[in-house]
């Protein structure tokens, strides 16, 4: 406070206004402090202790981190998370871009209708999407297996087969994201100046060439944006894997978030381990984010 009044940069009116400013910031700052900053500091601190809800904290230094890094389940969960990233991010971007590209030149009324319809699943919770697809993928009488049997094939065990377990998580995830992603891609496509295409047509470029040399480079920023969002989102996948497989079979679809949730549920276990795992996930996500941001920044500085 004292420092503020000594600051001659500001006039008395401005200083009076400042008080209003601080008051307007107060609720946000207080809430962020209590519910983000303090839990975060506690997480860092608690990761150096062995503790749980019944036991007092025992200082163990970096033991927790060592243990979690050697923990087979956690390792598997992290590997799975990256596997999901490799599968889901490109697949989703390709689907959303192709669909937006298909819609591009169609009648506006029609595309508005399509945009509305495909966005509806985007409002639905992961829990509900999970239940609906569990029902569709049900082993005995589920829709897919009925069709499979009708075609004379063998029923698919979505929960016990590694491939199909991943598939059963991928489908609802793609379903939930399709609307928003397509709309975003569509907006990006519409923003590409038509002169680019006209010039290319004069030069005799084919549709394929236009796609490769104009459309895709122009969409780069959107792809990068989607990449970051989807990657960080996929690394934190929780509700759909929990509903569809619970991590089965043999932890092949266990995600880090699911691992941490299970650790939290196991109140007698060592919470220090779980928290250090959660911190490691944050570091991984932060590295990915900063990596992508540096790419974007260097791009912009070249352009500007």
């Amino acid at each position: 406070m004292a420092k503020k009044t000594e600051n001659y940069k500001y006039t008395s009116v401005q200083r009076k206004e400042m008080i209003v400013g601080y008051l307007m910031l107060l609720p946000a700052v207080v809430l962020i402090t209590i519910f983000v900053i303090i839990p975060f500091i506690m997480a860092v601190q608690k990761s150096f202790y062995e503790w749980n809800f019944y036991k007092d904290d025992v200082w163990v230094g970096i033991q927790n981190f060592r243990r979690i890094l050697r923990n087979k389940s956690f390792q598997r969960a992290v590997v799975n998370a990256f596997k999901f990233v490799l599968i889901l991010v490109p697949t989703q971007i390709i689907i959303q871009f192709s669909f937006a590209h298909t819609l591009r030149d169609l009648n506006t009324k029609f595309t508005n209708m399509v945009k509305m319809l495909i966005y509806i699943p985007g409002t639905i919770a992961g829990i509900i999407a999970g239940i609906i697809f569990m029902f569709i993928f049900e082993f005995k009488g589920g829709l897919i297996n009925q069709l499979v049997v009708a075609m004379g094939l063998e029923r698919i065990a979505f929960k016990t087969n590694r491939f199909w377990a991943i598939f059963s998580i991928a489908v609802p995830t793609i379903w939930l994201g399709l609307g928003g992603g397509t709309i975003l891609n569509f907006a990006g496509l519409i923003n590409i100046p038509t002169e680019f295409y006209e010039a290319a047509s004069i030069d005799g470029a084919s549709g394929f060439h236009k796609l490769i040399y104009i459309t895709i480079p122009q969409m780069r920023n959107i792809f990068v944006l989607q990449c970051i969002g989807m990657t960080t989102g996929t690394l934190q996948m929780f509700e759909i894997p929990m509903m569809m497989t619970g991590g089965a079979p043999r932890e092949s679809t266990l995600t880090p978030m699911l691992y941490i949730y299970n650790g939290f549920r196991n109140a007698g276990g060592n919470m220090g381990d779980t928290i250090s795992g959660a911190l490691l996930m944050m570091i991984i996500i932060a590295i990915i984010n900063s990596f992508v941001f540096t790419i974007i920044k260097s791009e912009k500085s070249i352009e500007g």
């Binding site: 900053i37 303090i38 928290i275």
Partner: peptide, 21 residues
């Protein structure tokens, strides 16, 4: 920057300690 850096703290990291809070 105090407010904005919170964007980089994923919910997963502070789940358990938020519960403690």
């Amino acid at each position: 920057s105090y407010c904005i850096t919170t964007m980089y703290v994923p919910g997963i990291t502070i789940l358990i300690t938020s519960f403690l809070v």
